[in-house]
């Protein structure tokens, strides 16, 4: 099935004249009963001529439900671009993204917005919160925007887990960076989305605050069956995930299951060596 999609994606890309020859190796993900998000033959091209950059070059990946996936790679390798395409924030030049069974690359702007609101959570590296709203208001913002009734029980669970019960009435400017990121994670989870994307959520944090945020993401996967995809530079952070995907020059290069900090580091070294040999 997945292979079929890959074919279709590659064909589509070929039709648009953007494929410069299939690039292997392809990394096969572990089969799960259901897939939360799937990117298929994703290309993202910026600029043209001399300044042309392929931020993504034929990336195909699946993210199973209830799994915690980390994406790693050197700066400029296309991690953020991939995340943005998967989250419907950006349109790939070619290829398709499926959230559940829905092809979101075809969705008009309005539906896409509503999809982000209802089925996708996003955590940025910084400036995640609306400064005029309190922590609690920030958490419930996607629900408020949707005009949906909250599942109070779920909300309580999420808030309990981030451990900021006594800070809910505070404005973001009155919270520390780590607390802000935890609030952002809680917001991403509040609507019980199909998948939560986090782009270097711990990039600006010290190790303690990072651990808090990562523990929270980990718990939300383990205890509540959420799906999380996280970009990170930090091998320790990646070790919280079930699986790590390695990206370089816009291509998937490698995959690691049940990673530890050490195995992640090893893989990174290996890839560096390959890159050095190739370069």
């Amino acid at each position: 099935m997945a292979a079929g999609w890959r074919l279709v994606g590659g064909w589509l890309a070929a039709v648009r004249g953007r494929v410069g020859g299939a690039k292997e190796p392809r990394v096969d993900s572990v089969r799960r009963m259901s897939v939360a998000v799937r990117g298929s033959g994703l290309w993202k091209r910026y600029g043209s001529g001399q300044t042309q950059v392929d931020a993504l070059a034929d990336v195909t990946a699946e993210f199973g439900q209830g799994r915690f996936t980390a994406i790693m790679g050197p700066s400029g390798s296309g991690k953020s671009t991939l995340l943005h395409c998967l989250a419907g924030l950006d349109k790939p030049t070619a290829g398709q993204v499926f959230v559940g069974d829905l092809d979101i690359t075809r969705l008009p702007e309005k539906q896409l917005t509503h999809l982000r609101r209802d089925r996708i959570g996003f955590v940025f590296q910084a400036f995640n919160l609306v400064p005029t709203l309190t922590a609690l208001e920030n958490i419930t913002l996607p629900l408020d925007l949707a005009g949906r009734k909250f599942d109070q029980e779920w909300l309580d669970t999420v808030i309990d887990t981030i451990g900021l019960k006594d800070r809910l009435g505070h404005k973001p400017s009155e919270l520390s960076g780590g607390q802000q990121q935890r609030v952002a994670c809680a917001r991403a989870l509040a609507a019980r989305p199909d998948v939560v994307f986090a782009d270097e959520p711990t990039g600006n944090l010290d190790s303690r605050s990072s651990a808090d945020v990562l523990a929270f993401l980990h718990r939300s996967v383990r205890d509540f069956g959420q799906t999380v995809v996280m970009v990170t530079h930090d091998p320790t952070a990646a070790s919280y995930a079930d699986r790590v995907l390695f990206l370089a020059d816009g291509e998937l290069r490698s995959e690691l299951l049940d990673p530890t900090a050490e195995s992640v580091l090893d893989t990174m070294k290996q890839l560096d060596a390959t890159a050095a040999a190739a370069g």
């Binding site: 959570g121 996003f122 913002l141 925007l145 917001r187």
Partner: peptide, 9 residues
């Protein structure tokens, strides 16, 4: 940010 987390136009 608001647009990213689902505020429509």
């Amino acid at each position: 940010l608001l647009r990213a987390i689902g505020m429509d136009r």
